[in-house]
Structure formats: C-alpha cells, structure tokens
Amino acid sequence: MSTPLVEARALGKIFPMGGGPVHALRDITVQVSAGEYLAIRGPSGCGKSTLLHILGCVDTPTAGTLFFDGREVGALPDVARSDLRLRSIGFVFQRFFLLPMLTAAENVDVPQAEAGRSKAERRRRTSELLEYVGLSHRADHRPSQLSGGEAQRVAIARALANNPRLLLADEPTGELDRSNGEHVAELLDRVQADGTTVVVVTHDPSLAERAARRLIMRDGQIEREESGR
C-alpha cells in the first residue's frame, strides 16, 4: 500500500478561551491519498477549518501527529513549515486575499519569486496558469478590477504557482454567486483531474458532491464519511 500524502493520527486541538478551553478537534484520524479529492462538510464551528489549517501546516494540533508524504511535520521549525507550504501546499481562501496593489499576474508571480524561480520561468508559469484558469486577458488587472469569481480563479492560479502536491480550499465558493461558484467548482475538478490532491472545506453541498470522498464533521469529530460522486 502506498504512503498517503497526508496522514493525521488522533489529532486534537484545544483553544484556551476566557470561559474555559474549547475542544475544536477531538481524536481526528484521516488519510488523504495523492491525487484524491476530499471534501469536509459540517455546520459552522464544527472544526472543519481548524482541521484544514492543521493539514496545511498553518496551525499545530495540541494532540496527535501529522505526516506529510510520510514525514512527521508537527515538530518542524517555522522555516521548514513555511518552505513546505511554499513548495508543496497551495491555499485558496474564502475571501481570496489577493494582494490589492498587485495585478493578477503579479499575484501569481509572488509565490514563485519567493520559491526562487527565475524570471523567465515565472513568466512562463504565470502565463500558463492564467490561461489555465481562463484569465489571460485579465493578467494586468488589479483585484479591484476583477469580479469575485475571477478573483477566486486568480487565487487558485496563485495556489498552483509552485506545482503543489496538495491544494487546500477553505469555502472557495463562499463569497460567490451560483454561476461563479460553479466555475470555481469546475476548476477545482480540473485541478484534481490533472493530478493535484484537493481538500475542500465547504458548506456548499453541490461543491462537496464533486469530491470522491466526504468527511462530515460535528463537534470537532468526524461524524461519518461518505464516498462516491
């Protein structure tokens, strides 16, 4: 059996709050295979975004261990975790978080430059990605000049800039109307079909249904798992 790309074992996350500790995650064990499309659903506050953040190495669990490509990443120093995120993990956020002072192309360029790629290589990759998300004609537009759907597609291109093995999307259609949400959902299908592992956190049943496997969470735990489109 091949090593899963991501493996979480007995993850727990407790947030210390004024009124006492809040258990955001309890004993979560999950494996995500390379090339898989996994959706995580559940009501607000059930811990799905927290799980996504831990899987993406932007947060650390208070219990349990996390492996990325067979390597334990929980104890990695910040620099190593940053480098892992830069080269192997892409993030798509509900509110896009594009840099408003940069054009679409420059936003896609940012992670590549950070990874030390050459200018020529970046230019080629940026152009390829903007074409991939259907926004070549918007390359020189700033985020304020893009529609929500377009901005999210640029954000997806940015997330794919360094050819990550894992793409994590937190409510990627949460800010979009139905039509734009559909476009973004189709794009994520394509990303997964082209070989990138995709994990999506969503409230949107139609988006979740596109995933081959779905985790339904409640109160910080996985309530059940569904599979099949």
Binding site: S82, D83, R87, I89, F91, A115
Partner: peptide, 16 residues
Amino acid sequence: LAEIAALRALGFSRMR
C-alpha cells in the same frame, strides 16, 4: 493582517 496571514499560509516565512 489578513493579507500577511495569507502570505504566511502561502509559504512566506516569519523572517520574510
């Protein structure tokens, strides 16, 4: 703050 957090999530180190 949100942009900085997003950049950190995308792989910018603390130092960067």
